[in-house]
């Protein structure tokens, strides 16, 4: 167990380095764009005087490197913008302040994350169940109609963009059949039923599209797994087909499936951009896209880092789970 603790500490430390490098890269990319975020805050008429004032207030008059250092310092010690009566405090850990939205970045992320998490988690459960069961069925019926249908379904899912599929789903189920709400998000704490009812279409849309890769992966893994000698052993012991397939076959196929699942989920939690846009849900992806448009560099950096952190975290969890699932790793 102490081995595991050290492993986690080492991984978190390297995660920190990755995120430092990433935040610097995002800063540099943004300041290479020849536009001035202060112009947006300056208002009309924008006199050179007021523009200069806005720049100073937003600390944009400092060098790029200095701004980046300010950002790092803010995380540790907090920071404040402006002086005197107009002073604006952002408490530690301060991941920046969004002037267009007039909120600290951390508050924005905390507000938006539940929306994205609701979409991602619900969809993930669905796509895992759909993908794995269809993949297993396809493998067991290799070459037969069911296999061809599952593989065909996977091909369509892989090649359909989510916005197209999402809009079609809204058109058919929302407008024509009038079964589900067409947009909006209701917090789980407000009404669990409305929460689920508003989310069911985005869940299904994401699940159907994502399930494709799980069908293919599960099918391929199962075909490989069911050819192994220990499957014959299980049969020779007198195990029934169901036991052979699930206890002995799927058990082995599980490791790569769980690995992919962790990484997919980690990526999606950082923002389901297209799905959020299509279903008008104010999640992280929606926040990120709007901020890019508003040249709101603080939010872009904040959301990017948060998303990166989730991906790194997912990697870590996947590695730990991998050890737990494969005794050849943990009992090396």
């Amino acid at each position: 167990m102490p081995g595991l603790v050290w492993f986690v500490i080492r991984r978190l430390f390297s995660a920190l380095l990755v995120m430092l490098a990433l935040s610097l890269a995002v800063y540099l990319v943004f300041y290479a764009i020849p536009t001035d975020p202060a112009l947006l805050a300056c208002g009309k008429p924008c006199t050179p005087d007021r523009l200069e004032q806005a720049r100073h207030f937003m600390q944009l008059d400092q060098s790029t490197m200095q701004q980046y250092l300010n950002f790092l310092k803010g995380i540790v010690a907090g920071r404040s913008y402006g002086e005197g009566a107009a002073v604006l405090h952002c408490d530690a850990p301060c991941f920046g302040y969004s002037f267009p939205l007039a909120r600290p970045v951390s508050t924005l992320i905390a507000d938006r994350f539940p929306v994205t998490a609701s979409i991602a988690l619900g969809a993930a459960v669905l796509w895992l169940v759909i993908g794995v069961s269809l993949g297993v069925l396809a493998a067991l019926n290799r070459g037969r109609l069911l296999d061809r249908l599952a593989v065909g379904f996977a091909l369509i899912g892989v090649s359909t963009p989510s916005f197209l599929f999402g809009l079609l789903a809204i058109l058919v189920f929302g407008f024509w059949l009038n079964m589900v709400p067409v947009n909006g998000y209701v917090p789980l704490t407000e009404s669990p039923v409305d929460w689920a009812w508003h989310l069911v279409t985005p869940w299904l849309v994401l699940a159907v599209l994502q399930a494709s890769s799980y069908i293919r992966l599960t099918r391929a893994q199962m075909l490989e797994e069911l050819n192994l000698d220990h499957i014959t052993t299980a049969r020779a012991k007198g195990a029934g087909e169901r036991r052979v397939v699930v206890t002995h076959g799927l058990r082995g196929a599980l490791v790569p499936i769980i690995t992919l699942f962790g990484l997919d989920l980690g990526g999606l939690l950082g923002g389901a951009i297209l799905t959020e846009k299509v279903f008008s849900m104010q999640g992280l992806g929606d926040l990120l896209i709007d901020s890019v448009g508003n040249l709101d560099v603080a939010v872009v950096v904040g959301v990017t880092l948060f998303a990166a952190f989730l991906v790194i975290l997912a990697n870590l969890v996947v590695d730990i789970v991998h050890g737990a699932l494969d005794p050849r790793v943990s009992h090396g």
Binding site: D229, T232, T233, R328
Partner: peptide
């Protein structure tokens, strides 16, 4: 049945 290759005949998991 006793199999030839015990390593592959046993389930690694």
């Amino acid at each position: 049945l006793v199999f030839q290759d015990a390593l592959s005949a046993l389930n690694p998991y």
